[in-house]
Simulated assay, not measured.
Amino acid sequence: MYRNTVADVLLWKRWYASVGVLVSATTLWILFEKAGYNLLSFVANVLFLLVVILFFWAKSASLLNRPFPPLPNLEIPEEIVAKAAGIIHVYANYALSIAREIVIEKNFKVFLQVVSGFCVASYIGSLCNFLTLVYIGVLLSLSVPLVYDKYQHHIDEKICLAHKIIQEQYKKIHDAILKKIPLSSNKEKKTQ
């Protein structure tokens, strides 16, 4: 049920929820990025306002013999904590296994992958800040699935064509580089 809801929002089948996500993301981005507001001040002010409202609601309810504000049970269930810890445990072990491959097993390929990933992340981070990157991600997640759903056949054709062209170019470049590298024959290796 939850996945269908997310898919419906991303494909604009529940347009009111999609518009709500888009308007909320845009408002928060404008508030934080353009107005110069920061996250800590925003969270503190929202919580301050919530506590003040609840306090005055409870005081006025006791004075006017009205019902108290309805508050849910404010506890985190143990199952959710265990599930979150399990997920964190899996990712932490995966990161440690990568570190082990780099440091102890001296796997140069994994080292290059990690270094190139960090370089790409650093380059993207230098182009825009984290909040703008998250906002771009929200915009893309609300537009790309919709466009792909409407034009799936055309997009798949173009991607297959681009894939073939890239493979041909890769073969040409690969062959050109291999021609420039002198390869010694097996007879020369045996005599030396």
Rank of each mutant, 00 (worst) to 15 (best):
G125D: 08
N93D: 09
A84R: 09
L96S: 05
V115A: 10
L64D: 10
F68W: 01
F130S: 14
F56E: 14
N107M: 01
E75A: 05
A58G: 11
Y94W: 13
N73Q: 10
S116V: 05
P69E: 04
S122F: 09
A85R: 13
F130H: 11
S60N: 14
S126F: 04
F55H: 01
P67S: 09
I87Q: 14
E101Y: 00
S116E: 06
E101S: 08
S116M: 05
F56L: 13
F118A: 09
Y91A: 11
C119E: 15
A85P: 03
N65K: 15
F118H: 07
N129M: 02
A58H: 01
V90Y: 08
Y94S: 13
A82D: 01
G86V: 04
R66D: 02
L71I: 02
C128T: 15
P77L: 03
N107R: 04
C128I: 09
F130V: 06
F118G: 10
L71A: 11
E105Y: 14
F55T: 13
P72W: 00
L71V: 03
A95N: 03
L71M: 09
Y123H: 06
V90A: 05
E75S: 10
L96F: 02
P70M: 11
N107I: 00
A61H: 09
L63H: 12
S60P: 01
F55E: 05
V120L: 15
R66C: 11
P67W: 08
N73M: 08
F68A: 11
K106T: 15
I98H: 00
L71K: 06
P69I: 01
I124L: 11
S60R: 05
A92G: 11
K106N: 05
I53E: 11
A99Q: 03
I102E: 01
A99C: 04
F111W: 07
I102F: 05
S126L: 04
L127E: 04
I102W: 01
E78V: 14
A82G: 03
F108N: 05
I53N: 06
E79D: 08
V114H: 01
N73D: 06
F130W: 14
L64I: 14
P77G: 04
S126K: 07
L71W: 05
I76W: 00
L96A: 07
P77R: 00
V115F: 13
E105A: 07
F55W: 14
S97V: 01
F118Q: 05
A84P: 00
K106D: 07
Y91M: 13
S62Y: 12
P69Q: 07
L71N: 02
A95S: 13
V90S: 03
F68M: 14
E105Q: 10
A84M: 12
